[in-house]
Amino acid sequence: MTTFFAILFYVAAAVFVLGLAFKILDFARTPAPLSIPTTPAPTTRSGVAFRMFREVVFFESLFKGNLWIWIFAAAFHFGLALVVVRHLRYFIEPVWFWVAFAQPFGMYAGFAMVAGLGGLWARRFLVERIRYISTPSDHLMLALLLLIGLTGLGMKFLMHTDIVAVKAFFLGLLRFDIQPLPEHPGLYVHLLLVAALMIIFPFSKLLHAPGIFFSPSRNQADNPRETRHLASWAAKLEKN
């Protein structure tokens, strides 16, 4: 099992990093030929950075759009962020002070994450409009994330695993020195699903994470009076 998970995580990490890098490069190299920020929009780059910050950290537009989705989405994403921070301890030695500091918060964040996911999933059944637009993959994605969260919480509160050995396994992976992974069904499921998530990421709607940074309606400054936006393919039209 140790070898299987070692290979799985190398593959998953490679797919995740390369797949995401490919998509990000693809987004970045595709021109945005016209100035199309959703106005009122900031007129400067620093203003745009602030707008993007509010969008990424506070989900500003979603807050305007739907308070219920915002509450569930915020619980899930903030929970997930803290949980990820908490998990950094498996990959670093010595543990950075702020990662150590975040440990207890990360624990409760796991519940917030699961609760948020539960709320988001419930909407897919209960709200007619959202039921209409949901695809099977939307449900599976939520199931995947929810199971990751539940198995994680399970290992924390119900059936502990040897986390010192888990840490040795991941530190070993980073040094290409494979260490034994504890035999624990909960851990196997948890890690299997995390690897699946990493592999799916670059091919799914999880691309909303890098996508927002490239969304012209949000990342463009409202400056067409000062700056000419000209795509290379559009510039060719000027030759004739």
């Binding site: 979603l62 739907n66 989705i69 909407r123 695809t135 909303h208 996508g211 927002i212």
Partner: peptide, 12 residues
């Protein structure tokens, strides 16, 4: 391109 990829069907 981005809009084809980024939607999560959140419903907002």
């Amino acid at each position: 391109k981005v809009y084809m990829d980024a939607c999560v069907h959140c419903g907002s």
